[in-house]
Design a protein around this nucleic acid. Structure first.
Lengths: 137, 137
DNA sequence: ATATTTAAATAGAATAATTACGATTTTATA
DNA sequence: TATAAAATCGTAATTATTCTATTTAAATAT
């Protein structure tokens, strides 16, 4: 948990609470989710603090920002190389097994063809989760 | 162009203008981009009409909505199966060659493991475009 | 332990993108 | 040309996020 120290970030109660909430969290919460779940303990905490903290954690590589639904940022404490399944009905987001990847050849091709310096890749697979598949006739 | 008829959507001047603007457009424009480029010809056109139209076109499968930067929707008239390279510096979005795809095996695995019914896949590759690679020391 | 420095937190306003809504107008069709 | 359904307009409301000025607290040096 005290990865904060390594990054040189100050250890504040709000930050610790936010990190603690994220740690091991598989729900890919939004800023609002985080705010709601933490503000009872920190009634004075501002929304701006949540955004600031998330931005800082992201800049220091402790979390990832997901771009899954336009209109809302989501955050993932799992910084390992993995991707996501999104249920278009219930909006649930679950991790994909790590073996789901782009063909390496393809990526290289992209690099060569476009002259792009690739920094990261995000794969979103949209569909219906098992539960929603059942309930949608 | 008159794909509209097939969908049963009414042919209004605003819609035709929006469709015409999108046709063959490789810029992946946002609602605002579209509004700005069309409003000179339709000074009375409302922003709501742009959103309504884009939503309708999407529902009828004539365009795709891209989820690339959180906070802003972008639209793509190319509904074929393809993905995108995004320059994190200048925000340019370019199409990836179609051969960039997920391993089929991987997708099947996802379907089996998670019981998901897969509807669509979006791959975003983030990086620096050739120009921005040069100018960032 | 205390003072100093500096980064972080706060509140609130501002902005941006999108959605909602009721009144009016237009389109397609009979 | 009358009619009904759908689209448009203008505005208000909402949602997510960012900004700014000020206060507060953490880390560090004394």
């Amino acid at each position: 948990m005290e990865k904060l120290k390594k990054t040189g970030m100050k250890q504040t109660p709000q930050r610790l609470a936010i990190m603690h909430h994220l740690e091991g969290n598989k729900c890919h919460p939004s800023a609002e989710d985080i705010y709601k779940s933490i503000s009872p303990k920190f009634p004075s905490m501002s929304f701006a603090t949540v955004y600031n903290t998330l931005e800082n954690l992201k800049d220091h590589g402790l979390i990832k920002e997901l771009t899954i639904e336009s209109g809302k940022k989501r955050f993932d404490p799992d910084t390992s190389d993995h991707h996501h399944l999104i249920c278009v009905k219930c909006k649930k987001i679950v991790d994909l097994p790590q073996e789901i990847q782009l063909q390496q050849k393809a990526l290289t091709t992209a690099g060569v063809i476009k002259g792009f310096r690739i920094l990261s890749t995000q794969i979103n697979i949209y569909g219906l989760c098992p539960e929603c598949t059942k309930t949608s006739s």
